[in-house]
Design a protein around this nucleic acid. Structure first.
Length: 413
RNA sequence: CGGGGCGUGGUGUCAACGGCUAGCACGAGUGGUUUGGGACCAUUUAGACAGGGUUCGAAUCCCUGCGCCCCGACCA
């Protein structure tokens, strides 16, 4: 894309009403637009990042057999009453609204009930299971206090998957497959080394522990205790001697850290299927309960975490896997040559942001650093005299001159 | 929801004693000079969150509402 046509612009000033680093950087660089507290819109660069994260999540969920659907945001009251999750006393962060005729509706904050309701049209036999259904959709939660930019909003993008199994054993197999897929996602996002499977409270879902996926960061809201050897952690909220013994962890080996919850997985047992009257017939024709699991990944929160963690004083530093573009091509008064490189790279399938604007070199460089595309290619009088174009990684100081003919093969890979 | 801070052009502003035409910078427009780190000159553009009150006079003081941020609580 030609930057002269990109309607967003980088700003020299940071927004005064944001303290959170991820929101400051993302707004300054033009990735997101703040609509109101805890509610952000995605501009072209930001949407590209979101779509890249979604693509990775989608690939890994498909990889474990997940089938993608798209549920509705508007929710009927009755199915939520069956599981006793409608009343404000039970779930206090619903957004609710009404039809003209007065019928109450909810605005989806999670989707166990509607998923069970939808699959109940199709599921009745042991032969139907196991299966996994997921969606990537905006969730709405009426948080008392939005904070930390994209890390805790009232409207946010989430991947939520639900598994349906014949029994506990089958559920455990599905569950562990999905946990493994979660780590593939985090690894591909560059967060693998600093993201821990963390035992946590199962909440009102289940008496069992749930798993949280906590990415280490000082901006995290959760206190977790990490066992470096086992690469697992336990959330402070369930840190008791009894639980440690149950989990085979030793208190003296644990190190306290701050984490951002970038995913979670729950064992739902048959709480929702039973409540919504979804059962199956086994081989003998006997009616049995269906065992469910649910699995969330905060897509927009991941974008915030990555913006927060992968940045320096000059701006963002996107991992190549989700960067809005692969290459930032900067022309310094060499537009004709740059146009050709742009065309050649694009033809080779390389995603290029081409800074063809008629602005000073300093402005181009500052903007490029702020946007944080992994590779910067500068073509200038100076680079041409040195034998080609200058190639620099955003994450490194050094640059090298390479011949134009070698550029494509290098970046294509 | 409890506590605290705040609201000045598109953006920023620890700019302005209750008093002169609301200042400066960035951005944007126009013309020109530039072209390796947000370059320069000239010129133009554009502002008090909303409503009420006090006052001869309010950006400034008071009230109400709305909004934003932070701490805490909450967080399926």
């Amino acid at each position: 894309m030609k930057q002269s046509r990109l309607f967003t612009k980088t700003s020299k000033t940071v927004p005064a009403d944001e303290v959170s680093k991820n929101a400051q950087l993302l707004i300054q660089a033009g990735f997101i637009h703040k609509e109101m507290a805890g509610v952000y819109a995605y501009m072209p660069l930001g949407l590209r990042v979101i779509e890249n994260i979604k693509r990775i999540v989608r690939e890994e969920m498909n990889g474990v057999g997940g089938q993608e659907v798209l549920m509705t945001t508007l929710q009927p009251k009755d199915i939520w009453e069956k599981t006793d999750r409608w009343s404000d006393a039970k779930v206090d962060n619903w957004f609710k609204t009404k039809l003209v005729n007065g019928t109450e509706l909810g605005v989806g904050l999670t989707h166990e009930e509607p998923i069970v309701d939808a699959v109940s049209n199709y599921v009745s036999s042991y032969k139907d299971m196991p299966f996994a259904v997921y969606q990537i959709q905006n969730k709405f939660r009426n948080e008392l206090r939005a904070k930390s930019g994209l890390l805790r909003g009232r409207e946010f993008l989430m991947k939520d998957m639900y598994t349906f199994c014949r029994d506990q054993k089958q559920h455990e197999e599905e569950y562990e497959k999905i946990v493994a897929a979660y780590f593939k996602v985090y690894t591909r996002l560059g967060l693998g080394d600093i993201t821990y499977r963390t035992y946590a409270d199962g909440g009102i879902f289940t008496p069992r522990f749930s798993d949280e996926f906590q990415t280490l960061s000082e901006v995290g809201e959760d206190n977790i205790y990490v066992d470096e050897d086992k690469k697992i952690a336990i959330n402070e909220e369930i840190l008791t001697d009894e639980n440690l013994a149950k989990l085979g962890l030793e208190r003296k080996k644990l190190v306290q850290k701050k984490g951002v919850e970038v995913g979670n997985t729950f064992h739902l047992e048959s709480k929702y299927t039973d409540a919504l009257d979804l059962y199956y017939n086994d081989e003998k024709g006997e009616k049995k309960s269906i065992i469910m699991g649910c699995y969330g990944i905060g897509v927009s929160r991941l974008m915030g975490v990555i913006a927060e963690l992968f940045a320096d004083e000059k701006g963002l530093m996107w991992p190549a896997s989700i960067a809005p573009f692969a290459v930032h091509l900067v022309s310094l008064g060499q537009d004709e040559q740059a146009e050709k490189i742009y065309a050649d790279l694009s033809a080779a399938g390389v995603e290029v942001l081409f800074d063809d604007r008629d602005v000073s070199a300093g402005e181009k460089f500052a903007g490029s650093d702020l946007i944080g595309i992994p590779y910067r290619v500068v073509i200038s009088k100076k680079s041409l005299e040195a034998g080609g174009v200058e190639l620099k990684k955003r994450s490194e100081q050094a640059n090298e001159i390479i011949a134009i003919k070698d550029l494509i093969s290098l970046l294509k890979k």
